[in-house]
Design a protein around this nucleic acid. Structure first.
Lengths: 333, 333
DNA sequence: ATCAATTATGATATCGGTGTCAAAAAGTAA
DNA sequence: TTACTTTTTGACACCGATATCATAATTGAT
C-alpha cells in the first residue's frame, strides 16, 4: 500500500501553498491560470486522490444522504432505492446505503454507521426503529420516513394507507362476485401485515360476508409461502374462487401452486397481489395488484431531503395505493 | 443542527483525559471499572456519536469495502450484493455501495468516491472501467472483479464462461430435437452479449445447423424487448420451436408474448433463459435457465477481499454457469 | 512491606484537508 | 504614475479522533 499523496505534496510539487492547492482542487476558487495549471498538473502527475475523511472532518459534514433499508435485496426497497438514486442524481449528494442486516461489532449498527458518517440527511425505509430515536434525529438533520407512519413525526412520512388499499382490492374482488376469497397474510411481526388484513376484513364485513378463518393463510412475504398456502388450501379441499396475496412475491408462489393444481387463472380462480413489482405485468397472466409507488416515494424523499437541506420547508405529498387491474382477475365463476 | 458532542466533552464530563475516553469508547482497552463506567455514562448522558471522518482520518483507513455496480436495481447485481452483504456480515467491514449511475460534480465519479473514502478493499462488478486503472488500483488495495475477466488482473476475477454456458444451453435444446431456435440477444455494447451469442452460434455449427439471421433478435436485457422480439417473430410468421433468451428478464417478456400468441410452453415452444433470477422458478411454467452463481460470486468476493486484507493470498475459485432444467423446455414438437 | 511486573492514564503530535485573515499581486481609474 | 479596488496567495489554527510514549496506579510475589 503506497503512501497516500497529500495536498502538501501537490503544493510542494506545484510550488504553491497547501491552501492554494486545496482551493483549486476542490474548485472553490479558480486561481490564476498559471497556478491553476501547475496544481492540476502536479495532481495528475502524482496521482492525487482526495481524502474524504479529512475533507469531511474539516468541513464538519459529508455530502451524503443516508438511506436505511431493512434489506437491500427486497424488490420493493430496490424500487425505492431507484427513486432515491434518481432524485439525488443531479445533486452533489450521494446515497450512503445502510442495511439493517449489517451488524458491525458491539452496539454499532447500520444507523449509527450512517450517523457516524455525519450524513447530511437521512431517508429511512420502514425499519423497526424506536420512534423516540427517529424523533431526536429529525431534530438534528433532515429525515424522511418511507413506508411507515410514525407518530411523533407524521409530517416526515411518505406512505400509502395499507388498510385502505387492501380494502379496495378486496372490495374489487367482491364486486366481481367472489364470495370465498382466500387471503395470504404477511408475517405477524411485520408492521403492515395488520393493516392489510384489516382492510380485507373491513371489505368483507361491509359486504355482509363473514370472515372464514380457514381462508386466511399465514405467509411470510416470500414466494414459497404463497405457494404452500394455496397448496394447502387445495389439499384440504377448501373451496375458494379468489386469492388475495398481501404481496406480489407470494402471489407468484400462489400462481405456481394454482398452475400445478390445474386451476385456471382467472377462469377458475382470480388472483390479486400487492406491490406491483416490475415483473408482475409479465406474470402469466399479468397480475392484478395494488401498486405501491415505491419509485415515486423514493424520488420524492430524495428531493424532499435536498429541499430541507437547502433550508426550504418540505411537506410530503400524499401517496396512494392504486389497484392495477390486469388479467389475473375476473368475474367469479 | 446542535453542535456535535466530541470525545473531549465526554472526557471532561467523565473527569478523564480524552485518550482514556477514546480508548474505552472504541473498545481498544477496557479501562478500570470505575473509569469505564464514568466514560460510558458520560457518553450516554451527552448522547455521544462517534465521528467516523475523524476516526478514519486518524487511523488512515476506513473499515469499509467499496462495491461498485453498474446499477443497483438490476436483479443480477442485487444477487451479488446479497452475497457480499453475507460475506461481510461477520466482519468489522461494511459495504460502501457505489453505482455507476451516480455522477457527482466534475470528474468525481463513483469510483473516485469510494477511493476517496479510503475503502479497505474493492469489489467491482462488471463496469466498463479502463483495465489500466483497475490494474493500478489492484496494486494498492485488495480488488476483486465480478462478472468480467480483465486481462492484466485475470487472477482477481470471478466469472463464468459465458460462451460455454450459452453453448450448453443451446446444445441442450438441439439435443431435444429443436432445429429452429430463436435467440434474443443483449445490447451490442454490453460486454457479455458477444460471448453468449458466440456460444449459441458454436452449438449450432457443431450440430451442423446453419445460423438463421431471422432467428437472431436484438434485445436490450429488459423484459419488454423479449416481449417484442417474440411478437415480431410471430407477426412475421417465422417458424420456431424454441426461444433462448440471453437473460431471464427477456425470457419473462418472451413468455408473455408466447402466451398472448396462444403458443403453449413447452408443448409448442420451449423457452430457456439465462441468469436464474429468484423469480424464475415461479414462472409459469418454471423457467429452464442457465444459473449464474451471483450470490456465490458475491460471497466469495467478499471473503476473498477480507482474506487479502488479513494478508493471506486469495485465489478465486472457478465458477460455472449451470443449466437448470425446469418445465419451460421439452422435446421438440 | 518492598520491589518488580503489569496495566491504566494523560500529554501531545498527528492524520489531510479547510476556513480565516492578513499580505501580496493584479487590475482599474484618475 | 499614484491611489484604490479586487483578486489571489500563504501562514496557521482547527476539525475529532488516535497512537505513542512517559508517568502513575495497581497487582502480585516475595
Amino acid at each position: 500500500m503506497a503512501k497516500q499523496v497529500t495536498i502538501y505534496e501537490i503544493a510542494k510539487e506545484a510550488g504553491v501553498s497547501p491552501s492554494t492547492a486545496a482551493r483549486i482542487l476542490s474548485g472553490r476558487s479558480q486561481g490564476r491560470a498559471k497556478t491553476r495549471a501547475a496544481v492540476l498538473a502536479a495532481a495528475k502527475r502524482l496521482n492525487y486522490q482526495l481524502n474524504l475523511a479529512a475533507q469531511n472532518l474539516s468541513r464538519g459534514k459529508s455530502m451524503s444522504i443516508g438511506v436505511l433499508v431493512p434489506d437491500i435485496a427486497d424488490p420493493f426497497f430496490v424500487e425505492i432505492l431507484r427513486g432515491i438514486e434518481k432524485g439525488l442524481h443531479d445533486s452533489a449528494y450521494f446515497p450512503l446505503i445502510g442495511s439493517m442486516h449489517w451488524r458491525l461489532g458491539e452496539a454499532r449498527n447500520a444507523l449509527d454507521l450512517l450517523l457516524g458518517h455525519r450524513v447530511g440527511g437521512l431517508i429511512v425505509a420502514t425499519t423497526h426503529l424506536p420512534s423516540e430515536r427517529l424523533y431526536r434525529i429529525a431534530q438534528e438533520i433532515p429525515l424522511l420516513l418511507i413506508g411507515e407512519v410514525v407518530e411523533p413525526i407524521q409530517n416526515r412520512c411518505l406512505a400509502i394507507d395499507n388498510e385502505e388499499a387492501a380494502y379496495q382490492a378486496t372490495r374489487y374482488l367482491i364486486d366481481l362476485g367472489h364470495r370465498r376469497i382466500a387471503y395470504i397474510s404477511g408475517p405477524p411481526l411485520h408492521w403492515h401485515t395488520a393493516p392489510r388484513l384489516d382492510g380485507y376484513r373491513r371489505a368483507l364485513e361491509e359486504a355482509g360476508l363473514e370472515l372464514q378463518p380457514e381462508l386466511v393463510l399465514a405467509g411470510n412475504y416470500e414466494e414459497s409461502s404463497g405457494y404452500h398456502a394455496v397448496k394447502e388450501l387445495v389439499r384440504k379441499g377448501i373451496p375458494f374462487s379468489a386469492v388475495f396475496a398481501s404481496n406480489d412475491a407470494m402471489a407468484y408462489g400462489a400462481r405456481l401452486a394454482l398452475f400445478e393444481s390445474g386451476l385456471a387463472v382467472p377462469e377458475q380462480v382470480s388472483l390479486v397481489g400487492f406491490d406491483d413489482l416490475p415483473w408482475s405485468s409479465y406474470l402469466i397472466p399479468p397480475l392484478t395488484t395494488v401498486r405501491q409507488p415505491g419509485y415515486e416515494m423514493g424520488l420524492s424523499a430524495a428531493r424532499g431531503v435536498l429541499q430541507m437541506l437547502s433550508g426550504q420547508p418540505f411537506q410530503p405529498p400524499r401517496f396512494y395505493g392504486e389497484l392495477v387491474v390486469r388479467n389475473s382477475s375476473g368475474q367469479a365463476p
